[in-house]
Design a protein around this nucleic acid. Sequence first.
DNA 1: TTGTATGCGTTATCAG
DNA 2: CTGATAACGCATACAA
Lengths: 328, 328
Amino acid sequence: MADSKSITMKDVAREAGVALGTVSKVVNGIPVGKTYQRRVEDAIEKLGYHVNPQARALRSSRSNFIGVILPNLRNPFFSRLADCLCRELSHRSHEMLLFLTESNFDLEQAYMLMSEQQMVSGIICLTYNPELRIPKGIPTVSIDRSLGPGIACVASDNFGGGSLAARKLMENGCKRLAFLRTGSSLPNETDKRRDGFIRACTDAGIPYHCECVDDGTPYSAFEAFLAAHLHDGRLDFDGIFCATDLLAYKVRRTLLQMGLRVPEDVQIIGYDGAQCFGDEDYYCSTIVQPVEEMARLCVDLVLQSRARSIPCLLQIPVTYASGGSTRD
Amino acid sequence: MADSKSITMKDVAREAGVALGTVSKVVNGIPVGKTYQRRVEDAIEKLGYHVNPQARALRSSRSNFIGVILPNLRNPFFSRLADCLCRELSHRSHEMLLFLTESNFDLEQAYMLMSEQQMVSGIICLTYNPELRIPKGIPTVSIDRSLGPGIACVASDNFGGGSLAARKLMENGCKRLAFLRTGSSLPNETDKRRDGFIRACTDAGIPYHCECVDDGTPYSAFEAFLAAHLHDGRLDFDGIFCATDLLAYKVRRTLLQMGLRVPEDVQIIGYDGAQCFGDEDYYCSTIVQPVEEMARLCVDLVLQSRARSIPCLLQIPVTYASGGSTRD
DNA sequence: TTGTATGCGTTATCAG
DNA sequence: CTGATAACGCATACAA
């Protein structure tokens, strides 16, 4: 009933009339004699015993924590990811130790070390830092970026998604395409959105333009770009693929300000599958990342540490969703 | 340099030529002789020593974790809150142990216990469960709901916000107001949004209507309500205050479908201050909760455990922001 | 002031 | 298969 002070294995052992080690075995699922098993279980029930995670971690050098390292929770993609990861970890009896970095290299490294010191049983991270050092011996899964050999990277099928976006625009009648992107200057999986886009355009023999800038470049660069391509109230492009929904959102706003209609004059497709209020309408037509599946996969991978030969890159298929910025 | 195996205090003590206890004192900021201090610090630096959080927690029955218990991270208000809490805790050298409940009573209680077992140094939670039992001896702060005496509750000024919304609508020329709300059937601070709204209407001698339903009621109830109040293409109300931005978002959509213009025919104000993509435009005109300040306050309160006589309710002032669904 | 010794609750290693 | 016992790394009361 009352876990007044704190019931220990010793208490359980005394109550059950067995030795300490036997209790430990029962708790850890190691086979013991049938009657002993029973008596220990009863005692545990009766006393309301719970293992002490700290003591267990201290002794075994391994906690039930998973370190989750993300840039922030303001971007809907990240918060959705954290939401799914936390749930999935719970189902697997693990706790989530969350660290937010704003993509700051020093913080990323510091949280990596803190995770190690907390003896986490795994790390799931989203970082572009090429210098990042991964603690040895801790199963680690990276999202959207390859961290080198031996460390699995989970990502949506960025190439396929970029290609899909271009094809959808063409299906909807677009003849002059553009790709817009702002993102990390450091190489990562999301770069393939551009590659897929280009491939689809090339295959179709359709002209295209790519305008890519690094994070940190003010958005006004795109405003200038669009303005430069506006002639007599007509844009040089009738279909735009933006590397993220956020960018698509801003571009749409800019086009409207320029007096253009979306999707009548220009069609836009974003990437991510972000939704208003987390589960209402899409902000725009978009390539949807299957966040839930990606989270599940990350957890699967990070928990099956011993699995031999983990693939270094796992791409999850994406889907297209119409969200009002295209004519379908 | 290399923290190859795991440097312990014993190693530091040997390196510095002092006793174990002395190292412990230095690490914990307890005064020791000046030369000792120096030698220990040098040794720590040289060996790259870090305290083992598990051992410390086991010994002192207190970890540096703060249990954070929230419904989910999909709702922008919750994810914003988690974002701010995590940062603020980091600044104060604490880690965030995040638990998501979907407002499920059993989970809320389970995570409360898990937090206790993890020896957290505090709990910050958002739950409406009136039966929830708080572990004794753990500083706890509740958001948006009073958990009883001795436990601080942090909330925005819901009454003031409701009143402000009504006044803003009136300032913008509204003569026939309505309050719409869907939320927990369990009493909590957000109920005061309605009270404040009513007060402002009463004070101004303006007629109003309140339509409140419990969570779980399908949104179609509001569609029916609005349809019932539509006569000859004209709504009985020209100003609507919705208890959340999400509801305001849906209501606006419904009104547009009914052929009404927002804000020309009907003006709408929501509550929360939710923003597209976390920091872009507001979804609608809204009463903005100062999430950052609230998070900071929660952390302040939960960490100053010994503070005598903590107020049981702390209300943070809100502000109004125009977001396109009003005529200002 | 500094050093020593004990125990926090577990796990794991050995004898029985 | 079971039961005593030694760590795990740290904090702290107590002795020097």
